[in-house]
Amino acid sequence: MHEMSIAMSIVEAVDAKARAEGAGRVSEVDLLVGKLAGIHPESLKFCFSAAAKGTLAQEALLAIEEPEGVGECGECGMRFPVTFYYAECPDCRSLRVTIVSGEEFLIQSITIEEEGE
């Protein structure tokens, strides 16, 4: 369950940024979680709602964009979609494949509400 400690670090970063921006609350958190990043988005969402309790992000919607995996062949340079690390180049059958996309794990942006009192 590494999703819980990850959810806590997301909440911490979001809460700190929101406070620095003088936000009343955070309404949305946009994440980029590549399909090869080793993160399960559903359990991350579940943990996020628990981790966010009592912070500015406690009512925030967690929006997760999941870029597909892309591999690049080290022999012929071809780029092709991959679903895991053991990819094989569809053109030259080489296994020397480097993952060039799909491992992203970023907090892209947050939407904050500047509520007056």
Binding site: I6, S9, I10, E12, A13, V14, K17, A18, E21, G24, S27, L31, F105, L106, I107, Q108, S109, I110, T111, I112, E113, E114, E115, G116
Partner: peptide, 17 residues
């Protein structure tokens, strides 16, 4: 002020810390 909403970019690696 009225409740205004704005987007703030972070572009921060989740595991950055």
């Amino acid at each position: 002020h009225e409740g205004t909403s704005r987007k703030v970019l972070l572009e921060q690696d989740v595991l950055q810390k």
